[in-house]
Computed example of a mutant assay.
Amino acid sequence: MSETSHRISVADGESVAAVHHAAADDDGSDGDGRGWIVFCHGFLSDKTGSYEHRCQRAVREGYDAVRFDFRGCGESDGQFVDQTIGDKLADLRAVIEYFDPPALVLFGSSFGGKVAFHAAVDESRVEAVATRAPVTYNRTFDEYRSVVAETGELVFDTGVCIDERFFEAFDAYPFADVAASLSVPVAIFHGRDDDSVPIADSLEAASALETDVLLEAFAGEGHLFSASAEARLLERLFHWLEE
């Protein structure tokens, strides 16, 4: 299984860190597989942990897989507070242009799901979007918005923070734009007991989308999936992609 690290230039002389997991031919050598999957991590996350496992599973299924850190996260340049959704979209586009696949699937978790949805509207090479507990409607961040409005910034337990710049950009990306424009198949996997991003948002989003949508609710699962739920998610994901 071939795994290579890359530095990809973005804006202002900065770069993002990406890892490419290459699909293998039957003889074990690197070769063109069944397609490409690019994984977008969540708001306070990075490309490690579950994303490494997901990429390894993608390779076993015959896909080239890419995981990367948005700026301000993991091994990428920049400060978290300076990054807006527009910057995250620019990072994702830079990753896609760098590897230049003929077609791809986007997979996004939580806030990475929102990024994936909006990127897919403008990227003609995206053939499908899969998400886990995606942020769709901007009301999900209303509690954060209130803190920023009152104090000027919100500092998370990890030590990173956001300020009013985040919401100035955030408000320019309503889910209504996705619902009106997205035409590729969508898969949404969501825990029924998610207290960070309500499953009701995914139900509403699935109803609003005017394309084929698979929505699967995972009983007893919260915003972070258990190992067994993650395994089931991957089984469902690659079965859906096969279909």
Rank of each mutant, 00 (worst) to 15 (best):
198 P>C: 06
1 M>D: 11
134 P>V: 00
39 F>D: 05
33 G>P: 04
194 D>L: 05
150 E>P: 03
44 L>T: 14
87 D>S: 08
136 T>P: 12
182 L>D: 06
188 I>D: 14
143 E>L: 11
28 G>A: 03
165 R>S: 12
59 V>Q: 14
70 F>I: 02
138 N>W: 02
226 S>N: 02
240 W>G: 04
143 E>M: 12
90 A>P: 09
172 A>D: 15
150 E>K: 02
197 V>D: 11
50 S>D: 10
147 V>R: 07
66 V>L: 07
189 F>R: 12
157 D>T: 07
145 R>K: 15
233 L>C: 13
227 A>R: 14
134 P>N: 01
223 H>Q: 04
36 W>E: 03
44 L>W: 04
102 P>K: 05
54 R>F: 13
163 D>N: 14
60 R>E: 13
5 S>W: 09
191 G>Y: 02
70 F>M: 07
4 T>S: 13
104 L>G: 03
147 V>Y: 06
206 A>P: 01
175 F>R: 00
201 D>G: 07
53 H>V: 13
213 V>E: 11
34 R>D: 13
71 R>E: 12
142 D>K: 01
200 A>K: 13
80 F>Y: 07
31 G>P: 02
135 V>G: 09
135 V>S: 09
87 D>F: 00
157 D>K: 04
66 V>H: 01
232 R>A: 12
193 D>L: 03
222 G>Q: 03
172 A>T: 15
219 A>N: 07
179 A>W: 03
239 H>G: 15
106 L>M: 03
175 F>M: 03
50 S>W: 09
101 P>S: 05
215 L>T: 10
142 D>P: 05
171 D>I: 10
145 R>S: 12
218 F>D: 11
46 D>S: 07
238 F>W: 12
138 N>M: 14
180 A>R: 10
10 V>D: 13
133 A>N: 07
225 F>P: 00
86 G>S: 11
236 R>I: 13
199 I>W: 14
61 E>C: 15
89 L>Y: 04
193 D>I: 04
158 T>Y: 03
16 V>T: 01
163 D>G: 10
194 D>P: 04
148 V>G: 00
215 L>A: 09
92 L>Q: 05
149 A>F: 01
94 A>L: 00
